[in-house]
Computed example of a mutant assay.
Amino acid sequence: MDEVAVPDWNDADLQAICKHMSILAFDLDNTLARSKRPMSEAMAERIAKLTHLVNIAVVTGGKMALVESQVLAMLANKDVRYEALHVMPTSGARYYRWIDGDWSCIYAHNLTDEQRQRATESLERHAREQGIWEEHPWGDRIEDRGSQITFSALGQQAPSHAKEVWDPGNVKKAKLVASVAPDIPDLTVRSGGFTSVDISLSGVDKAYAVRALAEQTHTSVASIAFVGDRMDPGGNDYPAALAGAMALRVQGPEDTLTLCDELISWCSAIR
């Protein structure tokens, strides 16, 4: 498949995007919020405003509990149109909507016990062989998310500054992915965040997520705008661009906050 050139958000035609988009989707870690941290009050205010202008999706490799703590808890005291929110944890392997005053799971594609065991054993074995099995991690190195197994080299609770400098060229993660993939050919192994490798059912990534979102909402992938910080080939947000979404690259939550202000302005004028 040919590569897709993803523009930085401030180089994109935001007016045209607002005219054509039916859903505005966001990655979570290092896009809406710093890794494993709640999004800011300012970000929560912008997301709340946007729910009154367009459907909003949060698409993340993390589990639902992280979306709840990082996003939904911060929206609890805001003026939110919850019916406009779409939550897709574990890269779209699960999908939640607000129905009758609560979050309902519309679908969940879970790994079997046997698949989980094979994935976990392969990750640990190869991480040890490659010298990236940290002796003193911040939290669990391997997390079973039901529909996804995630290896976090420094631990699930590692601080952002440590994560960002661990593997800036993605060399360590790429080597681990290449070693694990042949052990579990029925599953997909891919680079995740700064220090993570994700394992899920074959074909479940953020390309799958935007296609599933389009199907569930009876719209087209081309009408979905997707905002993420890892939009280079090999990044875990990049598959959304390959699938045909209107992809926008940000460098972090500060960029996203400014982008949201621009989108609120354009959408308010157009709609």
Rank of each mutant, 00 (worst) to 15 (best):
Y96S: 01
R94S: 01
D100E: 15
H109Q: 14
Q117H: 09
T60C: 11
G101M: 06
K63T: 13
Y96Q: 04
I99G: 07
R94K: 13
R118L: 13
I99Y: 09
Q117T: 13
S69L: 10
A108I: 04
Y107F: 13
D113F: 01
M74W: 00
V71M: 08
V71T: 06
C105K: 07
A93P: 05
R116P: 02
E114F: 08
W98K: 00
Q70D: 06
G101V: 03
E83D: 12
A73C: 13
G61T: 01
G92L: 03
D102H: 13
I106H: 08
P89Y: 02
E83Q: 11
K78L: 10
D79F: 00
R94N: 05
M74R: 11
C105T: 11
V67N: 04
Y82P: 03
E68L: 10
E68G: 03
G61H: 06
S104F: 10
L111C: 03
A108M: 12
S91W: 03
G62R: 12
Y107W: 12
L72A: 01
H86T: 05
R116N: 08
L72Y: 02
M74C: 04
Q117S: 13
S104T: 14
T60D: 09
V71C: 08
H86R: 10
P89W: 02
A65W: 10
N77L: 14
A93L: 07
A65V: 11
T90W: 05
A84F: 02
V67P: 11
N77K: 15
D100V: 14
D100M: 15
G61P: 11
L66R: 09
G92D: 00
T112F: 12
A84H: 08
I106V: 12
E83N: 06
Q115K: 08
K78A: 12
Q70Y: 09
S104W: 06
G61M: 03
G62M: 04
V87D: 06
L75R: 15
Q115F: 00
R81T: 07
G61Y: 04
R81Q: 05
A65Y: 11
L75Y: 10
V71K: 04
E114W: 05
N77C: 10
R118K: 07
R81G: 02
M88Y: 06
V87C: 09
Q115T: 03
A84C: 09
R118I: 08
L85Y: 04
K63Y: 05
Q117C: 07
Q117M: 05
S104N: 08
R118P: 05
M64E: 03
M74Y: 00
L85N: 10
K78V: 04
V71A: 07
L85A: 09
R116D: 14
S104V: 13
C105M: 09
V87S: 02
A73M: 14
G61K: 04
A93C: 13
R97H: 05
A65N: 07
D100K: 15
S91C: 11
E68P: 05
D79E: 13
S91V: 13
Y107V: 01
D102I: 12
S91T: 09
G92W: 04
A84T: 07
V80P: 00
Q117L: 09
W103F: 08
V67A: 07
A108V: 04
E68I: 10
T112D: 12
L72S: 04
M64I: 14
E68N: 10
R94L: 03
A65M: 14
E68T: 11
G92C: 05
M88R: 01
V87L: 15
K63A: 15
Q115H: 07
